[in-house]
């Protein structure tokens, strides 16, 4: 499976929330390609999540520019951005829209017009990935927080974006699911999907490998490549 590449470019980007004096993200210049695993680390409030929202065009920088494939991110609609970049929120409850786990994974695909056997095969593939097949007929809201997180990730992955952004994915999952998640992310990373994880979970970031970007008070303080 060869996926189209996506190139994310941030040029001198700064963002300050209204009513705040200090910028949440300050003078960030960054280039990310699909096929890379990148971890953005830092303490709570260091601007990691804000950076993700800037990349997705959910926030508009006061200074600098964010480009996807050499076009400003704001010239895309959100649905078009979603084609390129999958985004999983910290709180999975805010992205569960359906009455069964199966429909949740099928949701985006159906909107794209996928039907019949193709849809079924695709959903099964991504449900299996996180061992969600036995839960396919359950109401997503009745699952445990860790299971919900897994459903949200597989629903976004099923759309096969070129790049995946995960915001604190290990917040409510236990060590067993963490292991599964690490394996899956490394696998899809090998297949060419770019992965950006925002995390302060040291053991998770270390196990994932790839590049690490550390943020302190909105600024990138260190780049580090491992393995």
């Amino acid at each position: 499976m060869i996926k189209p590449m996506v190139n994310i470019n941030l040029n001198n980007v700064s963002y300050t929330y209204s009513g705040r004096l200090e910028p949440a993200v300050e003078n960030v210049t960054l280039s990310l390609d699909s096929g890379e695993i990148t971890a953005i680390t830092g303490l709570n409030g260091s601007g990691k999540s804000t950076l993700a929202r800037l990349i997705l065009g959910l926030l508009k920088p006061q200074e600098g520019q964010v480009c996807l494939d050499n076009r400003p991110v704001n010239s895309y609609t959100l649905a078009e951005v979603g084609e390129k970049i999958g985004y999983v929120l910290q709180n999975p409850n805010q992205m569960l829209f359906n009455t069964t786990v199966y429909n949740e994974v099928a949701f985006g695909l159906r909107w794209k017009g996928m039907k019949g056997e193709e849809l079924k095969a695709r959903c099964n593939q991504y449900l299996e990935l996180f061992h969600l097949w036995p839960l396919r007929n359950k109401l997503p809201f009745n699952l445990s927080e860790g299971q919900k997180q897994m459903v949200a990730i597989s629903a976004v992955l099923a759309l096969e974006p070129s790049c995946l952004i995960l915001d604190e994915p290990t917040k409510s999952i236990d060590t067993l699911r963490k292991k599964i998640l690490i394996r899956v992310l490394r696998d899809i990373g090998c297949l060419g999907t770019g992965i950006i994880v925002i995390s302060h979970d040291r053991s998770f970031v270390d196990a994932l490998g790839g590049r690490e970007i550390n943020m302190v008070k909105g600024k990138i303080t260190a780049y580090e490549t491992r393995r």
């Binding site: 649905a79 929120l89 992205m95 985006g108 909107w111």
Partner: peptide
């Protein structure tokens, strides 16, 4: 804040609200 997150993610999941 939650509602705005929901609007964002549903669009990122491929639903173009304008279309």
């Amino acid at each position: 804040n939650e509602l705005s997150n929901i609007f964002d993610t549903i669009q990122l999941r491929g639903v173009d609200l304008r279309k």
